[in-house]
């Protein structure tokens, strides 16, 4: 099967500072790939390179077969991206935001209408469909942002801390949506700071100071580190570097 993401020694330096250091991994099509790491580990930097927002300093990466140096525009056709910073227009309504991003991705009039109705129905936003996004609670906003990132049925979607600050119930709903998308064959690339969420992933990589320190299925990781929770794995890896 085609790999959705392949990277080889992908590196980004800001001046002397190495934000991501020769990371190498691949993600299979349809996989839910967890991307863990402490604050400042380099997760967002890596994602921005993969999305074609940031030029790598060295190394290679291919997204759905497209090269991140030369084929950024093709990459943008096939990916969705939900940035760490909430980035829907707060001064547009729910419906207007969907329409705008859908339009930008080239959906036609009929598709736009159908898609808007479908998202609003699916998220149960009927009562606030014509309210400004600014007035929605955070959890709703994040779910809306996720749906908007999927509006053009991308093959891969990058989610950068999609559930930061969201309550447990909404988080649960959010992951239901992720699973639904994955069932439809979408590759999910997700960063998170919640260890319970890491358990939901097919495979998880853990980044420390710009490098990937471990990459396996959650159960594989737990086994090799000899603990019974992802939290334990994370603690060992994080402490390991600080004592070094």
């Amino acid at each position: 099967m085609d790999k959705a993401v392949i990277t080889n020694k992908l590196t980004k330096k800001f001046g002397d500072f190495v934000a991501t250091n020769e990371i190498t991994f691949d993600v299979a099509q349809g996989e839910i790939f967890g991307f863990l790491g402490a604050n400042g580990a380099g997760k967002t930097t890596a994602i921005r390179m993969l999305c074609g927002l940031l030029k790598p300093t060295s190394g290679d990466a291919r997204i759905a077969g497209f090269d991140v140096y030369r084929q950024t525009e093709q990459i943008k056709q096939v990916i969705g991206y939900m940035s760490q910073k909430f980035s829907l227009y707060e001064d547009l309504t729910v419906r207007e935001n969907i329409r705008f991003y859908g339009g930008i991705y080239g959906l036609n009039r009929a598709d736009l209408k159908a898609k808007s109705d479908q998202i609003i129905e699916q998220l149960n936003l009927g009562s606030v469909a014509d309210k400004l996004v600014a007035s929605l609670p955070l959890g709703w906003k994040q779910r809306l942002a996720f749906s908007v990132a999927l509006v053009h049925n991308p093959r891969i979607v990058f989610l950068d801390e999609p559930t930061g600050g969201v309550d447990p119930i909404t988080r649960r709903q959010f992951w239901d949506m992720i699973y639904e998308a994955a069932d439809r064959g979408t590759t999910i690339f997700v960063t998170t700071h919640y260890m319970d969420e890491a358990e939901y992933c097919n495979r998880v990589s853990i980044m420390v100071d710009g490098r990937i320190k471990a990459l396996d299925t959650p159960s594989g990781l737990k086994r090799s580190f000899g603990t019974d929770s992802m939290d334990g794995v994370f603690q060992i890896l994080a402490r390991g570097t600080s004592t070094k």
Binding site: C51, G52, L53, E73, K76, Q77, I79, G80, Y81, S83, K85, F86, S87, L88, Y89, E90, Y101, I104, Y105, G106
Partner: peptide
């Protein structure tokens, strides 16, 4: 400043 530019930049626009 508010970050929507980045969102636009990942679209094929």
């Amino acid at each position: 400043e508010i970050g929507t530019q980045e969102q636009l930049n990942v679209t094929p626009i």
